[in-house]
């Protein structure tokens, strides 16, 4: 229900910050998340930082799908 995209905080001025989505920059509000420092990653929704976010680790979806099948199989035994 809610699109939110991670971005890196480049600079902060009062309760506004300039963030970098990855080659796309935008001035956003820190009005509902004020404890933010430069270089933090935040989730941005509707022009606001709504929460901090850690960098994602690369993982293999197909591997997890296989594990899921194993979970189902194990229980049937």
């Amino acid at each position: 229900m809610c699109l939110a995209v991670p971005a890196k905080v480049k600079s902060i001025e009062k309760n506004m910050a300039v963030v970098d989505f990855g080659g796309v920059y935008k001035r956003i509000s820190l009005g509902i998340l004020s404890d933010v420092k430069q270089n933090d990653y935040v989730l941005v929704h509707a022009g606001f930082a709504i929460g901090k976010v850690k960098q994602k680790e690369a993982e293999d979806t197909l591997k997890v799908l296989k594990e899921l099948k194993d979970v189902l199989k194990d229980e049937r035994r």
Binding site: L3, G22, G23
Partner: peptide, 9 residues
């Protein structure tokens, strides 16, 4: 990458 990001946002 930047076009994809703007699309995502």
């Amino acid at each position: 990458a930047n076009v994809r990001k703007l699309c995502d946002v």
